[in-house]
Amino acid sequence: MSSTETASSRQTPNRARWTSTDIGLIAVFAALVAASTQIPGIPVGALGVPITLQTLAVILTGLVLGGGRAFAAVGLYTLLGFAGLPIFSGGRSGLGILATPSAGYIIAFPLAAAASGWLAAIVIRRTVKYRALFLFAAAMASTIVIIHGLGVLGFMVNAKFDFTKAFLADLPYYPGDTIKNVLAAIIAVSLHKAFPDILVRRVK
């Protein structure tokens, strides 16, 4: 593969219109998120919402693709899961998942990918040093506010937990998510090194 800039990417300086390259990235990262759920997860707590590599894949999609394309990729994944493809964690699928305690997490994923991507674009544009640290901060902020926020809400609405109980039910995911975010940030830095024009298109 070459790292030459494609003609199409030069014509569209912003994300106004996605090119074939963008389509490829969106589709493949959607597949990445789907594939990440196929690695056995560990069900946690009484309700058995499993810990998987999924949050790693979601956040990484954001950190690598940036807000718009990451939202499209994870959104596509969610949509196909709703439509019946067995790609939600544990091989589940269908709109019915919205009635389960996992609902909050499922809805949060595209939004978290978008948020971490939006922050990552700023990090990549502005910094060269300590990128991993900044990307980790972007990932952590998106994870805590959106994934855990909506996750807790999901427990409250669908499992009829009060806030304290919902918070406690969500708590076991923090250590894993923190480790996964460290990993995501480190991987993202390497990917931006390997593919320097993947997020921020350079002008010569």
């Binding site: 593969m1 494609t6 090119t19 074939s20 390259t21 389509i23 490829g24 990235l25 589709a27 390497s190």
Partner: peptide, 30 residues
Amino acid sequence: RALVLPVFITTVAYARQTGDALAARGLGEP
């Protein structure tokens, strides 16, 4: 990192290749 990085490098390279293949065939352009 050394363990999982190759998966993601391969993934991105594959996505790029796919994008190039689509572009070369005039598919997927707006």
